[in-house]
Amino acid sequence: MKKTLQLLAVLVQLAAGTTWLATGASRGWTKTSVMIKTLDPVTGIEGVSYEKKFLPGVDFLGASIGVAGVLAGASLFFRKTKNNNHQ
């Protein structure tokens, strides 16, 4: 159990870090939509619309560190599994 929790903590952190890097390593807040500008040819006005897109920010990284920390912390409450395979 101890090892499982520690492994989970590492996996959560790795998955969050990879997702954050893969989506552009935004150093701002997490966004669930992005602004799209389209030019109206008649008036020359740039119309604004939003496209749903998940862009994790530093709060996402912080939350993942928190979750990983909780998992790693919880692992301290379990003892190491003894290896009973003695020769």
């Binding site: 150093r27 701002g28 602004m35 109206d40 006005i45 740039e46 119309g47």
Partner: peptide, 23 residues
């Protein structure tokens, strides 16, 4: 009716500026 008209607002904030719009 085309929904092109918009107002954009920007505010400075420590982590990043807050950019938004209204249509």
């Amino acid at each position: 009716p085309k929904g092109v008209n918009n107002a954009i607002f920007k505010l400075d904030a420590p982590l990043e500026s807050i950019n938004g719009s209204a249509n």
